[in-house]
Design a protein around this nucleic acid. Sequence first.
RNA 1: CGGGGUGUAGCGCAGUCCGGUUAGCGCACCUGCUUUGGGAGCAGGGGGUCGGAGGUUCGAAUCCUCUCACCCCGACCA
Length: 491
Amino acid sequence: MGKKITKRSEDYSIWYNDIVKEAELAEHSAVKGCMVIKPYGFALWENIQTELNLRFKETGHQNAYFPLFVPKSFLSKEAAHVEGFAKECAVVTHYRLKSSADGKEVVVDPEAKLEEELIVRPTSETIIWNTYKNWIQSYRDLPLLINQWANIVRWEMRTRLFLRTTEFLWQEGHTAHASKQEAIDESKLILDLYADFAENFLAIPVHKGLKSINERFAGAIDTYCIEALMQDGKSLQAGTSHFLGQNFAKAFDVKFQTKEGKQELVWATSWGVSTRLIGGLIMTHSDDLGLVLPPSIAPIKVVIVPIYKSEDERVVVNDVAERIVNELKALKISAKYDQDDNKKPGWKFAEYELKGIPLRIGIGPKDVKNNSVELFRRDTLAKELVSADNIGEYISKLLPEIQQNIFNKALKFREDNTHYANTYDELKSLIDSNAGFIWANWDGTTETELKIKEETKATIRFIPLDEEKIEGKCIYSAKPAKHKVVFAKAY
RNA sequence: CGGGGUGUAGCGCAGUCCGGUUAGCGCACCUGCUUUGGGAGCAGGGGGUCGGAGGUUCGAAUCCUCUCACCCCGACCA
């Protein structure tokens, strides 16, 4: 009975869709390629926002908001940038509708054509740098450290809930600096921030790295990324941070006066994470029973399910449950006490497992008699009877332990699914068997990268940052290797 | 854009090949009673332009033509 989740081993894609749907995170909307994020899914995004805002503000950034629409001419000011996005832009051409001749529907009013088309932002560099030109005059205005939370539209051919949708939510940071080094430092600071956030808040182990020229952001000098391994052996780019050099400063003529009175172009960065993180969260931790959430991000960390037969029993159980709820509330642990009498305990157990709630407390008459409660851990599926005394304290110690266990599990999975290829044949067979991250020597050329992509469908996910001198030959070209990099199929 | 699939109640489906009572089943929903330690039971009840348009026919969910939408797999993609 009830909801069923397709097993991962049966069909990983359908498993993912089942989780998103059955845990009520999101659903397909009436608009092709766009999703409705449901309250439980949006709660995850809100928690991501809260945590990132804290971290952004600690590092001196401020939030602001820029327009949804970008004049077409802005987008074309940076050549590489426009080329990268042109194929997936939604364009606004008119500003008015009118009734059709027969009065039965509305049609676009041909009289209301815009003089200049507006692009629905695929990213905001251009509109923001056009604005920064007015904000920056002197070195005293720098650094300028701005973030915005916004929706983005990229007209993708094929979409998947959270992982790639036509419209999605993200944050995009855009900073301006007086020196090259300062901008590079900023892009790396954010990279570290993202990695720490992914690992310690989302419990997703990530590699920090540099993207190859082929994979980097359109308009960037360097693109850094955090890259995570999903349970099906595919890699997910979970966040990016770009050193933009002076490309956008040149395109939008953003200069500042130095202490010495000279005019110089500013140096830029941009960086972002999106609702895609929720997809990564699902695919990193969840199992065949449903969603598994690390306590940090779980909107509800503890759910309390009362068990009773008679009204007398209900009252006795309720007393204990209320006491525990208050205890948890006092400790700022978000808890839900499910008093719904229309659902049986068994139903609730299954439902909250599906929704990934880290801890469940069951309280029945037997427990009241023994001054105990039944504590169920979603991550290990283990049940234990614990004393009802100081349960809040017990739980506040247990939650970080669960968080750590979930992270360790994901880390172990990544280690078990990381391999080294010494030959191209090895690489091919590892990729074919969805083996995960595969380290291999690469000669550093785009040509080689593209050949390998064409032949194996795997791409270079990142070049490690703290790389030592590489010896040996490229597994493809046999030329001297420039880097040891990670290959994988990617989302 | 290619290949595959699906549109019938809020959700999941049967019925379609071979046209024919009042379009059915499960879940969910409403009412009542009994239940409640792993997705409760019984009884009663409400809910449908069968994706849309045209056609064939005495009669269409079912046959024909056109069309729309969505999903999956590719191609594509920060």
